[in-house]
Design a protein around this nucleic acid. Sequence first.
DNA 1: CTATTTTATGACCATATGGTCCATAAATTG
DNA 2: CAATTTATGGACCATATGGTCATAAAATAG
Lengths: 203, 203
Amino acid sequence: MIRQTSQRMRGRPREFDPDEAIESAMGVFWSTGYHATSLPDLLAATNLSRGSLYAAFGDKHGLFLRALDRYIADSLTRLDAELDPRKDALEGVRACLARYVERTSGAGAKRGCLVVATAMELGSHDAEVEQRIRRFFRTMETRLTAALGRAKSEGRLADGIEPATVARLLMCVLEGMRVVSKTNSDRSASEAAVRILLDRFGK
Amino acid sequence: MIRQTSQRMRGRPREFDPDEAIESAMGVFWSTGYHATSLPDLLAATNLSRGSLYAAFGDKHGLFLRALDRYIADSLTRLDAELDPRKDALEGVRACLARYVERTSGAGAKRGCLVVATAMELGSHDAEVEQRIRRFFRTMETRLTAALGRAKSEGRLADGIEPATVARLLMCVLEGMRVVSKTNSDRSASEAAVRILLDRFGK
DNA sequence: CTATTTTATGACCATATGGTCCATAAATTG
DNA sequence: CAATTTATGGACCATATGGTCATAAAATAG
């Protein structure tokens, strides 16, 4: 079933790129949600026939998991770039907040976030999904805590501010922005809300 | 179709209480989501036959709207009680935050929030739903702004803190808690996050 | 070349879906 | 009582659903 694309294999070669298919499927699930996405939707987006899709990914759920994994990996890659230990820690956190403001403003805002949508739609009904979401949130919170810990050791955090506590607060703020922006993508309000946080917790 | 239960009507009287049916339907939509809830699910929860349900509520979507309206009304009732102008404003905000911490902790946390789930699942695909969610968020933010405005005029807010900005921040924090708590209902983390906010913005 | 292995295609399937309809029951009115 | 109005339950319907399978096509091995 799984094969190395780099090496010459026996049978008829695959005519599509599985990564591209996952990327396309991710887009549909992202804008439409899991249950509201039908097989025909996925076939149209990926340009696959039913048989090919099932042979490659097992079923709709399997494909969804792959798409979710890709979305999460992309998110963490961006987060890692921003919170790179070689860069200024507080500046990294600031960049991260700025990105969320950016993503939840204007036209693209209404698309929301695949992780948040999935957490709400399947969170407590699908163990495989739940585990992935939990792990993602935990990882993100851990990275934020680490960055804030560095900021603190550099004396850049206001007195009495605990990195872990602020990290949890930021998690709520960031994921909350994705919810609120579904019906209100006013950029300046988000910017002000984020600025007030940095003003009060940094120094 | 719509009739006054208080007044005597001509034909056979209804054998069920529509409000109870809406309440039951709300429960199912709340734990299961819109698309994942089937007609049989709703019939079982409400103890109605198909005919009765369709006669009373039009269709699944109509019933959902009624359930959503009820959920929103309940939420705003609680919010109003907490932010009652006759009570201490900052204390009211504190109570509101405490209630969200409560709701997102322990066993019941994983049920999430019907508004947040709906915003993510149907937000940008269903105009009637979107309007309701937008209005709810707008109302909630307005009430928080008003309460914070009162707190400020009583000198209970830290210097340079804008009520509208904090209200938006609180919106994100509160709705974000509902997302994060789907996979992590650790109470103490939420408590600490909320406390840090009150410590820094109140006085 | 033939045999083998793998993929692609789309017809096909069983079932679940939301929604409609109607015969019957039950209550009210005159 | 008869007539009227409404509610009920469930049979029924068209369609959409996720999923399977037989066959054809393309590549390699010998």
